[in-house]
Write a protein that binds this DNA or RNA. Structure first.
Lengths: 269, 269
DNA sequence: CTAATAGTGTCTATTAGACAGTATGTT
DNA sequence: AACATACTGTCTAATAGACACTATTAG
C-alpha cells in the first residue's frame, strides 16, 4: 500500500497493463424510502444510486461508481455491465441501458482509460444479499434553476455529495461540473449524465417501473416521478397519464395513519 | 491485394495491430435536393447520408460509414470524429454528437474492434472540395409500419440499399436487422440507430438547423422535418411550432413556377 | 388566365393545468 | 372526532389537428 497518490503513481508501471483500457461503469438506480417519524405522515420515496468507496489509489477513499475493466477476448460491454451488476447486487435479468462513452485523455491518472457507462434500474426489494461493505445507497435530490444550471445532492445519511452543472454546449465533455471533491474520476459527470437521461426518458418510456416493486401505490409511483423530474406533479393529471399503464388490484396498503391506498401493478403492453 | 475475403483473413496477422482496437464511425447527415422535371413542381428535399465504398477486405466493395482507428495516445473519440469529418468533407466547426458504442464480439472479422459512432449534421452548401471518389450521398426514405417495425431505403441514384428493422427489445444489439448485403460490418445497425436518434431529437431540439443553409424557406424546412419523421405534417401546425425558432427576412426565393416563398433564418436563443 | 405552391383564419378536438371537493382509513 | 392522505369531478387554458380559404408568382 502507498501513502499518497503521488507515491502510488510513481510506483505504477503503465507497462504492466494494456496501453489502452476499456472499463464499464454502472449507474445503479433504485427507489429508497425514508420513514417519517410521525405515524400519520407517509414515508417519502426518493431515487437513489449505489456508490462504492475506493480502497486504493488513485482517488483512495473517494466515492465512485461500481465498475471494472472488460475482458476484451470474451466480453462485450454489456456482458461486463451484467457481471459487475451481479457482483454488486447478485441480481440478473435487470434493465440495463448503455449511457455514454467517456474518454477524455486524463480522466484516469494511470493511463488512457475509456469508460462506457451503463444504467441499471433495479427494485431494491429484490435484493437478497447484503451489500458489499464498501457500497452505499445515496438518495438523490435534484434542484434545477433553469435548463442550463442543475444542482444534484447525493446523501447516504452520513455524507453529502453536491454536484453543480453548467451546460454551455451539448457536448458532455464541455459541461462545467463542480463537486465537493468526494467523487473519483469524472464520475460526477457520469452521474449527472445518467440522471439527465433518466429524466428525459421517464416522459416517453415506462422505465420507471423497473425500479418499482410488483405492487405499488399511485401516490408512491407519483413520488418517484417527482423525484426524478425534480418537481411536484398534480394528482389528477398524473393519474390521467398513468392510468393506462397500470392495473388496479384488490389489494390495499396497510398500516398507514390515514386512508389506505389501492395497490396497482404494471401493465406491460 | 487479395482475391477473396478468405485469402485476406488468412494473411491478416492480428499481432500486427493492437489486440483491442477502437474506431470512430461517422454518420454524416445532410439535406439533398431532387430537382423535378416539371418547371412548376417544386424540388423535393430529403435527408441524406454519406457512405464510402470499401476498396479492400474485409467487406471489399461494400458500402460503409467513414471511420477510422483512434490514436490512443493523443486523440479523444471526438477528436478522431473531427479528423475523419475533416478528411471526408474538409469541414470543421460542425455539429457532432456521440451516438452509441457498438461492440459485439464479431463485428469485425480481423479482431475485436469497438466502434463509437458520432453523428455529424452538415449543410451541403458549405462543401467546397469535391468528395472523395469512393464516397457518395445516399438519400434516405423512411417507412414505418409501427413503432417496432421500420424500413429504411438508401439510394444514391445508382444503387439502392434497403434495411428493415424489427425491434423486440430496447437493446440495440438485439434488434433484428436485415439489409440486402450491400453494407459492411454492422453499419446497417449503426445507420438505423442514428436515424432513430435524429427522429427523436427533432421533436425537442433545434438540431435540424445544422443541416439547413443560412437562408431557407419554411416549406423546405417542413420537408426536411417530414423526411426525418417519415410522415406528412400539416402546414399551419408546423408554422405555429416553428414560428419562434426562425426570423423572417426580406429575401424571397426566385425562379420557381409559382408564388415565391419568403426566406427565413435560424433564430438561436 | 392557369398551374402550382405560399401562407393564413378559424373551428374543433384533445390534452394539460388548477382547484375544490368527497372518501376512508388510523388513532 | 381529528388528522392525513386517497381519490375524483369539473372548469379552464393551452395545444394540436383539420380544412378551407386567400395570395402570388412564372409562363
Amino acid at each position: 500500500m502507498f501513502n499518497s497518490e503521488e507515491e502510488f503513481l510513481k510506483n505504477y508501471n503503465v507497462k504492466d497493463f494494456k496501453q489502452l483500457s476499456l472499463t464499464t461503469d454502472l449507474l445503479i438506480f433504485s427507489v429508497s424510502e425514508e420513514d417519517s417519524n410521525n405515524y400519520r405522515k407517509k414515508s417519502i420515496k426518493k431515487m437513489s444510486i449505489l456508490l462504492v468507496k475506493r480502497d486504493n489509489y488513485p482517488y483512495k477513499d473517494l466515492w465512485c461508481l461500481p465498475g471494472g475493466f472488460i475482458n476484451p477476448d470474451t466480453e462485450t460491454l454489456l456482458d461486463c455491465a451484467k457481471r459487475i451488476l451481479k457482483d454488486e447486487t447478485n441480481l440478473s435479468k435487470i434493465y440495463l441501458e448503455q449511457l455514454y462513452t467517456f474518454d477524455s485523455l486524463n480522466r484516469d491518472p494511470r493511463c488512457r482509460v475509456i469508460s462506457t457507462s451503463y444504467m441499471a434500474l433495479i427494485d431494491k426489494n429484490k435484493l437478497t444479499n447484503k451489500l458489499n461493505k464498501k457500497a452505499s445507497w445515496f438518495d438523490i435530490t435534484l434542484f434545477e434553476n433553469d435548463q442550463k444550471n442543475i444542482k444534484v445532492l447525493l446523501d447516504n445519511g452520513l455524507e453529502k455529495i453536491s454536484i453543480t452543472i453548467n451546460k454551455k454546449t451539448n457536448d458532455f465533455n464541455n459541461y462545467v461540473i463542480k463537486d465537493n471533491d468526494k467523487l473519483a474520476f469524472d464520475h460526477a459527470l457520469v452521474i449527472v449524465t445518467g440522471i439527465e437521461r433518466l429524466r428525459n426518458k421517464v416522459n416517453y418510456t415506462d422505465i420507471v417501473f423497473n425500479m418499482m416493486p410488483e405492487y405499488f401505490t399511485l401516490g408512491g409511483l407519483q413520488q418517484v416521478y417527482e423525484t426524478i423530474l425534480g418537481k411536484k406533479l398534480l394528482d389528477p393529471a398524473f393519474r390521467r397519464i398513468i392510468k393506462n399503464k397500470v392495473i388496479k388490484t384488490n389489494k390495499k396498503e396497510i398500516g398507514e395513519g390515514h386512508r389506505p391506498s389501492i395497490l396497482y401493478k404494471y401493465k406491460c403492453n
